[in-house]
Design a protein around this nucleic acid. Structure first.
Lengths: 336, 336
DNA sequence: AATTAGCAGTCGAGCAGCGAGAGTGCTAAT
DNA sequence: ATTAGCACTCTCGCTGCTCGACTGCTAATT
């Protein structure tokens, strides 16, 4: 039931009515029954109605259900596969160019904005980090990188820690993180880090932010297909369209999302309000990381209205990511 | 008179009425007089009216007049100069980065789309060109470049030329062009080429096209500020906005225009219908080439509706181009 | 207990009509 | 050559209207 509504709404962009469902899908139930079911769905928060006597439009929850239940398993069209192979195998062996073409291909496939970053080689290695006591609850976090550059930041801690306690914490954190690239740090973090009772939460948070910033520093990203936005009915008003273009063209919000995209060869689907980046809440993002984990990885994905065609989006992104990974490992073996 | 209308229309985007002019500018004439003058301007083709009883809106001719008469001489705002210096002197010495920032700065200044290409080093030098007789009026134009790559193209000539005549022509053209970079060829062309009676026009045209294509091959361009178009009233309808974004995002039309931008340190202003590129006819383009002629040059400029603020556009583009040229020559002297 | 038919009620889209306001073109006077 | 005056034109926003699409509810049916 819910899936029909979502699929219909994705296609038509209009509130879906009970009678339409009954007619279109030749179900053996009448519109009245459907109305009852829809009332239930509304109560559970899956769909809303623009006004009392109108059809239902799915909310983020409904899309989430749809994605988990149906869209994840889809395969890309044969045509898309051929196009990708043709375009990416031709010509250049330049990974930068691959990213640009991937964005272009994806954008055409999903008829939405697509983004891609070229594979980034994780260069910045952490040498050491220090915590210096300043006052009561204030400390300085100093991060020394392998290439001798230094990053620092003030921390306002939750509890007052002495210099000894801070040094202790620094030693612990160094043991875990030093010698690693920012990329590896992010990975190690999720896997190995266990909060130590003596660690101050704020210190950890600031460190995290600092590492992310370092990563973000020069992520180059290619954006393609901005014009697709203007075709979508949700952006018919100039205002919303302008906002969308502004956010996507600028790209810092996306950059933040990209950095947090996991590497476990899965597809990240972030639907509407789920997005930690406030600017991106009106949209959905489908992202995948590709490349060789820990060595050189990039990201491909697409951004669109929450009412986007998740099925082809997910399958296209997955196929592209896999193919780019293949290309990249082949390149690595060729020139060792 | 005409200048007032143009300036007013640029500001308000609404048809300018005779009474408004009389009131706003405190002229010592009445609205009736202005009406008479405007009727004349309409007859001369400078302005048109959306309907019988409406004010006048300037046409391409009027903008051309305005640009030549007023906009060319303007100086950029002090604020813009400071911003440019601050942003471009800071940090990196990477010309690619300069181009990106220049586009960004310009886009903000003119509140329109801005484009910039990083300085391209003219590498491809012409070694030799040959003309081979095939049939009656058909010949093959072969272009051999310094790096041993070969470009060829068929030519359907206007008159039948023998192999001897073709060889003759090739010798003449070689004398003029060989050893030069594609960049220098373009320059030499405008300056030194005099049509020889025995040269076939079509041959020359094809050669020209071939050189241009070679240049276009990998011009990287940075586009900034697409969102500005959505603010302009001329792109209120989703349709026209989408078309604009499509053309500008794609960029091949712009590429063609960029290649033909002269190097004589002038500002190229292409207004509406004047544009040889059909896709760009609804817009105006203000472009300047910067860098070291014959060695490494790039282009900065802006694209917007024909009703654009030519005064700040021209002054901003000029200032940026000059400043980028300075930066580039400084870089050249530093590392010889 | 679930399903269905029927019906009253709600809401939005589209259309015509209207009046106000802005601005022109023309004519006659200066 | 300029200007005042006036009739005419066109746009824009408002109102009220109808029509059609849907729902929610109730009562009947399986």
């Amino acid at each position: 039931m819910l899936e029909i509504i979502v699929a219909d709404y994705i296609e038509t962009a209009a509130p879906v009515a009970s009678q339409q469902i009954a007619r279109k899908h030749e179900l053996s139930v009448s519109s009245a029954t459907i109305r009852n079911d829809m009332a239930e769905l509304e109560e559970m928060g899956y769909i809303t109605r623009p006004h009392t006597s109108a059809g239902g439009i799915p909310g983020d929850l409904a899309y989430r259900f749809f994605v988990e239940r149906h869209a994840r398993t889809a395969r890309p069209s044969r045509q898309f596969e051929i196009l990708v192979r043709g375009s990416l195998l031709a010509d250049s062996g330049d990974p930068d160019e691959w990213a640009r073409r991937a964005a272009s291909l994806l954008s055409n496939s999903v008829r939405n904005v697509a983004i891609a970053t070229p594979p980034q080689i994780a260069t910045a290695k952490l040498k050491q980090l220090q915590l210096v006591h300043l006052q009561e609850t204030q400390a300085l976090l100093v991060m020394v990188l392998q290439d001798a550059t230094v990053r620092q930041r003030m921390v306002n801690m939750e509890v007052a820690l002495s210099q000894e306690e801070l040094t202790d914490a620094a030693v612990r954190l160094n043991k875990l993180l030093s010698g690693k690239t920012t990329d590896q740090i992010k990975t190690a973090w999720d896997a190995d880090y266990q909060p130590h009772p003596a660690d101050d939460i704020v210190v950890v948070e600031v460190l995290k932010a600092l590492v992310e910033e370092e990563q973000a520093h020069d992520v180059r990203q290619y954006t393609q297909g901005l014009h697709h936005i203007l075709n979508q009915p949700e952006f018919e008003s100039t205002h919303s369209a302008r906002e969308a273009v502004e956010v996507l063209e600028d790209g810092v919000a996306l950059k933040r999302v990209i950095i947090n995209t996991g590497k476990e060869s899965g597809i990240d689907v972030i639907i509407g309000e789920e997005n930690p980046q406030e600017n991106l809440r009106p949209y959905s993002v489908v992202l995948a990381r590709y490349g060789i984990p820990g060595e050189a990885t990039g990201v491909v994905g697409t951004v669109g209205p929450t009412r986007m065609d998740y099925t082809t989006a997910i399958s296209s992104v997955r196929y592209l990511a896999n193919f780019l990974s293949e290309l990249l490992t082949a390149l690595g073996e060729e020139r060792p």
